[in-house]
């Protein structure tokens, strides 16, 4: 199944994206000719059981992993044509990342972590924008703290702020609430949704939590390396229902 959203330009596009690990008997097809578009200003959640290829999809889209075949576009830049240096630059200038854990450099304080991508690029920090981001994530009084002095939820908020502050074309979030208690998780998700609604940010999030997926505008379901379904305006109940159903299909097939 392919998905197309034509009302807005795509922030990222995958065409015939295939990723195969190993070879011969041990060959595993993680992604099987996936075509997908992520519209700008949209919050997309990717769901699927373990081994469905959801993480691989995100890694290939985020220029962290090279596909076996097919093409990935960030805006109109085709990634396979780039060398490591340009890939690094693309990640630095156009992409934002939020990982499940270990998002922060332990030797730098919160503020330094947030401005890290800009500092690496040698760019000036837009202080107005910085203040907006900090206010939104509610970290004004924690900027001088080292990661070890912050709670897990605060650390993830710093990571979110870091992803936002460089105004990337698209933010990839890999199970951003996986390590958090439900309250901190909800805060982060609300914050991500707000940044899409209010700041016009594009976000792609991998999750296995239907509650988290419900914050998104759209949910993609992956199974055996293919996109098997999608859902607009999801709720936790609908997603959970779909996943149960999905499991049955998975068992049948």
């Amino acid at each position: 199944m392919t998905t197309h959203t034509h009302d807005q330009p795509a922030a990222a596009t995958a065409v015939e994206l295939t990723k195969i690990y190993g070879s011969g008997d041990t060959e595993v097809v993680a992604l099987d000719h996936v075509d997908v578009e992520f519209a700008a200003g949209n919050f997309t959640a990717i769901m699927g059981p373990s081994g469905s290829g959801k993480s691989t999809l995100m890694h290939c889209m985020a220029a962290l992993d090279a596909p076996t075949s097919g093409k990935v576009y960030i805006g109109d830049i085709e990634l396979s044509s780039l060398n490591d240096k340009d890939l690094t630059r693309t990640r630095r200038d156009r992409l934002g990342f939020i990982f499940q854990a270990f998002n922060l450099v332990p030797t730098l304080n919160a503020k330094e972590n947030i401005t890290l991508p800009l500092d690496i690029a040698g760019k000036d920090v837009d202080s107005e924008w910085f203040d907006t981001v900090i206010r939104t994530v509610g970290l004004s009084d924690r900027l001088k703290h080292k990661p070890s002095e912050l709670s897990g939820g605060q650390q993830q908020r710093v990571a979110c702020a870091r992803a936002l502050v460089s105004k990337p074309d698209i933010i990839f979030a890999d199970e951003p609430t996986g390590n958090l208690d439900s309250r901190s998780g909800a805060e982060i998700l609300a914050f991500l949704r707000n940044s899409v609604r209010e700041l016009g940010q594009t976000i792609v999030m991998v999750t296995h939590d239907p509650g988290a997926a419900a914050y998104a505008d759209r949910v993609l379901f992956l199974g055996d390396g293919r996109i098997v379904d999608e859902m607009a305006e999801p709720t936790a109940e609908k997603v959970l229902e779909r996943m149960k159903n999905f499991d049955t299909i998975g068992q049948v097939s």
């Binding site: 990342f97 270990f102 450099v105 332990p106 890290l116 690496i120």
Partner: peptide
């Protein structure tokens, strides 16, 4: 190693 990975992911070049 993880820190190095993170730094590289957020855009630190090899040279840096």
């Amino acid at each position: 190693t993880r820190e190095v990975g993170l730094l590289r992911a957020v855009g630190l070049s090899r040279r840096q």
